[in-house]
């Protein structure tokens, strides 16, 4: 069962919380390693994920091989829409077990589609596992690009984006800059300000940066998700340890932050 967030529990239902590091393949992230484990061990026939095209923009891809997968890196910080083309790709192939990687909002509707296929044209029966990335919100692309240009950075040079307390850390080819979150907030999509879900409570596995130590935080929410993590670790694709109390507390604080923001904003809207 997948439960919604609330003030007591801002991270939803949990099977296990882990901190993981990639092991088998260098330069690949934990999520990529898990996907690789599933592809190489025939747990899934394909993976739907986003690839960074340039700057903060991305493109959705259906991936079937190891090489294709290892080419997709980095997070995009803009919603990469699942388009009609994706539906075409899925219905016009004999792929039957697909792993989806997306944002909490996408995990929500995929879970909905999987549980309640409201129309027969749904490809819900092809969804095997849903992986969600943590999300603080996504940017209105143009506004954000203008903002970083003010810091004399070209969007093409952006390597990674992260949040560190009250600052947004933009890592680019020549170093990094810190932008106060208050300024950044203006460029977050209004819909995202309404969203209470930081971790992606409808995914089988949620993944994001660990706070207290280096590594990736993994939350599993179903037996399926938990088994995948355990097997991926047994097969040596990732290294896993249970998350510390401190880590979980910090995670909840961060999730609560987004939830409260959403509540404030909803109240303002109504």
């Amino acid at each position: 069962m997948f439960h919604d967030v609330n003030l007591e529990n801002p991270i939803g239902s949990v099977e296990g919380i882990y901190v993981a590091k990639p092991k088998k393949v260098e330069n690949a992230g934990v999520v990529t390693s898990i996907l690789l484990y599933m592809l190489e061990n025939k747990k899934v026939d394909g993976v739907v994920t986003a690839r960074k095209v340039k700057g903060i923009l991305g493109k959705i891809l259906l991936i079937k091989t190891r090489d294709e997968l290892l080419n997709t890196v980095g997070n995009c910080w803009s919603v990469v829409p699942y388009t009609m083309k994706l539906k075409d790709m899925l219905t016009s192939s004999n792929l039957n077990k697909i792993a989806f990687v997306g944002l909490p909002c996408q995990a929500q509707f995929l879970r909905h589609m999987k549980t309640f296929p409201l129309v027969e044209s749904d490809f819900a029966n092809k969804i095997y596992v849903i992986i969600s990335l943590f999300c603080m919100g996504t940017f209105i692309t143009d506004g954000f690009v203008k903002l970083i240009r003010e810091y004399k950075i070209s969007p093409e040079d952006v390597k990674n984006i992260d949040i560190d307390k009250d600052y947004l850390v933009i890592i680019h080819s020549d170093g990094e800059i810190k932008v106060p979150v208050d300024i950044v907030l203006n460029h977050i999509q209004h819909g995202c300000l309404l969203c209470p879900d930081y971790t992606g409570v409808f995914a089988d596995i949620s993944a994001g940066r660990a706070i207290t130590k280096k590594g990736t935080l993994l939350i599993t929410r179903s037996k399926l998700g938990d088994n995948i993590i355990k097997k991926a670790s047994e097969e040596g694709y990732i290294e896993v340890e249970s998350a510390s109390e401190d880590e979980i507390t910090k995670l909840k604080e961060k999730a609560l932050e987004k939830l409260k923001r959403a509540m404030d904003y909803t109240a303002k809207l109504l």
């Binding site: 829409p81 699942y82 994706l86 997306g102 509707f109 999509q189 819909g191 995202c192």
Partner: peptide, 13 residues
């Protein structure tokens, strides 16, 4: 309010 996730396009019969 739309963030462009694509849920609607994928759902439409």
């Amino acid at each position: 309010l739309c963030v462009g996730c694509g849920a609607c396009t994928l759902s439409c019969p």
